[in-house]
Nucleic acid binder design. Structure first.
Lengths: 151, 151
DNA sequence: TGTAAACCTTACACCTGGAGTAAGGTCAAG
DNA sequence: CTTGACCTTACTCCAGGTGTAAGGTTTACA
């Protein structure tokens, strides 16, 4: 089977399949007499496996390990478990970081007057100034007083 | 002030500062007679601003816009507000994606026996097989019966 | 005065995980 | 015979820098 059909069936692009071969994630593909790559059922399984593993968020290097476990009938499920557990912790860590960032952004937004004036708590905050603290606009909403509760 | 001290004070690396100059995020830096870059107070403020904006998750291109707003005394706070609002939505989207990935990983983990045997629901799942479905190990826990509820 | 360390400069390669493009060979249909 | 779809390799490019090389400058110390 040619690479294009293989791409369609595995969910990867032809480009990606060639790339995986070039970095040794999959082994050199058998060629037809015309030089075209020729894939068969076991190759398709392997590539589908890789596509799913990538969808699960595993890096290429993780995939190398997962693939070797996939192909090793003497694997211990605990080895796989450990790898996935580690990945889960990575994902949790990234979620926490993003949530932290999210709450910072949310605070910026709620402090910004969102009008046609240049005074902006967002700019002030990023500039390291006290947001709006020393600017006497005379009509600051009360929400600014809730500021210190979030330090 | 030399670049090294500037890096220390702004929270960026010297490498990063040169990089920002090379891509035009900051303008060409004044040089001393020996060719060394020479930074002063306003440069430090600008670089600190960039460091914070990056910490908030803004891309370099976002930073270009934020910096121009920062330096424009006729800005409207609503413009800044909109940019930050958009960023917040991006972050929310990424959090949702990661949470979705997280729940998939979590399910994989709970389905894996985590022992010394090769039978592994994680591998099966990534291989596109029914996890453990056709494997008669004889001692599968009841949790596997709950599997079809998630198709 | 010598010299070694610590600083500075530019320029290039490298990282992830591919995507885009060029230049050319092959194959099937009309 | 040509057209278009497919295939090949090889190269560049993306973000946002980091690492390293090769060399110039400055400072401290003996």
């Amino acid at each position: 089977m040619n690479i294009s059909q293989t791409a369609t069936e595995t969910g990867l692009s032809a480009k990606t399949i060639r790339y995986y071969e070039s970095i040794g994630l999959i082994s050199q593909t058998r060629r037809k007499t015309n030089g075209y790559r020729d894939y068969e059922a076991t190759d398709l399984k392997q590539l589908k496996f890789l596509c799913r593993a990538r969808d699960f968020g595993f890096s290429i290097e993780d995939c190398r390990v997962l693939l070797s476990l996939y192909q090793n009938p003497e694997r211990k499920s605990a080895e796989v478990h450990e790898l996935v557990e580690k990945k889960l912790q990575d994902v949790d860590q990234r979620i926490r970081e993003l949530q932290s960032m999210r709450s910072l952004l949310d605070k910026l937004i709620s402090d910004c007057p969102n009008d046609t004036q240049p005074e902006c708590a967002i700019i002030d905050s990023m500039a390291g100034r006290e947001p709006l603290a020393n600017i006497n606009t005379g009509n600051l909403p009360a929400k600014l007083t809730g500021h210190e509760a979030n330090g």
